[in-house]
């Protein structure tokens, strides 16, 4: 099925395309622009930033009501409760990570950028962590007071959450990328992602527990750091591959 006449039209085309500029800027420019754009987008819709925080506070309120207001009991289970509630709050905002881009067609444009998709996805995940994981980590000590978390573990709580939630964002982004093409991906996303969160939960809550008992916390934080390193190594590629699958429909 050859087309006749294509050669003729080459002849007519005239001078070499003047309307072409070779792209100049590199990956850094694209990363910076994507980071800035996502940050602006989220800042304009404050609700998306605040909802996980309110959710976090609400869930923490449910526990004393559901279990007992006894400070002694609460203080023993506080590390786990705070970590689980923060983890669920972080999960809540994951579904919208790529959804907006998918719906309005920017995701296709992201895929067609000459820059590596894994790096661009990483910029988006960084924004997600900055506006979800980090605020949750900063807010956790306040809720810790409400659960009578023993003194001396507040800093560790915030630190472990800040470190751990970065891994949560990275792992969660894989699930978000896999389910972004599905109309009701929200529940499925939790199903896919929660089992993968367990190691982070174990070492995150373990760090707070260790701080309360007066044990060394370096090992826990080091392992959380190691988990983050592994996630940083593998997750961007998995996110990129998943986005390419999702765009196929």
């Amino acid at each position: 099925m050859r087309m006749s006449g294509t050669e003729a039209s080459v002849g007519k085309a005239g001078p070499a395309t003047p309307s072409h500029r070779e792209p100049r800027g590199g990956l850094r420019v694209a990363l910076h622009a994507t980071f800035k754009r996502d940050l602006t987008l989220l800042m304009r819709r404050c609700g998306e930033v605040f909802n996980p925080l309110v959710f976090f506070a609400l869930v923490i309120t449910l526990f004393p009501i559901g279990i007992s207001p006894d400070p002694e009991l609460l203080s023993t289970i506080a590390p786990g409760l705070l970590w689980v509630a923060a983890l669920l709050a972080a999960l809540l905002s994951l579904d919208s990570l790529f959804r907006g881009d998918y719906d309005d067609g920017s995701l296709e444009q992201l895929l067609l950028s000459p820059q590596p998709l894994a790096a661009l996805a990483l910029a988006k995940v960084a924004v997600h962590w900055l506006l979800t994981g980090l605020p949750l980590a900063l807010m956790a000590p306040v809720l810790g007071i409400m659960l009578s978390l023993p003194a001396g573990s507040y800093l560790v709580l915030a630190l472990s959450l800040a470190l751990g939630s970065a891994s949560l964002s990275l792992i969660g982004a894989i699930g978000a990328a896999l389910t972004v093409g599905l109309s009701r991906g929200g529940v499925l996303l939790s199903l896919l992602v929660l089992p993968l969160y367990i190691p982070v939960l174990i070492f995150g809550a373990g760090a707070v527990q260790a701080a309360i008992l007066g044990d060394g916390i370096t090992a826990h934080l080091a392992i959380l750091g190691a988990l983050l390193a592994v996630a940083l190594m593998f997750a961007p590629w998995a996110i990129a591959a998943s986005l390419r699958i999702s765009i196929n429909g």
């Binding site: 599905l182 499925l188 699958i245 196929n248």
Partner: peptide, 24 residues
């Protein structure tokens, strides 16, 4: 299993399930 079942296109379902199995 749930991810594989959630896609309407079988080709996409297969790829997504493969990626998830590898991540797992």
């Amino acid at each position: 299993i749930a991810l594989r079942g959630a896609f309407s296109s079988r080709d996409s379902a297969s790829r997504a399930a493969s990626v998830l199995a590898m991540v797992g």
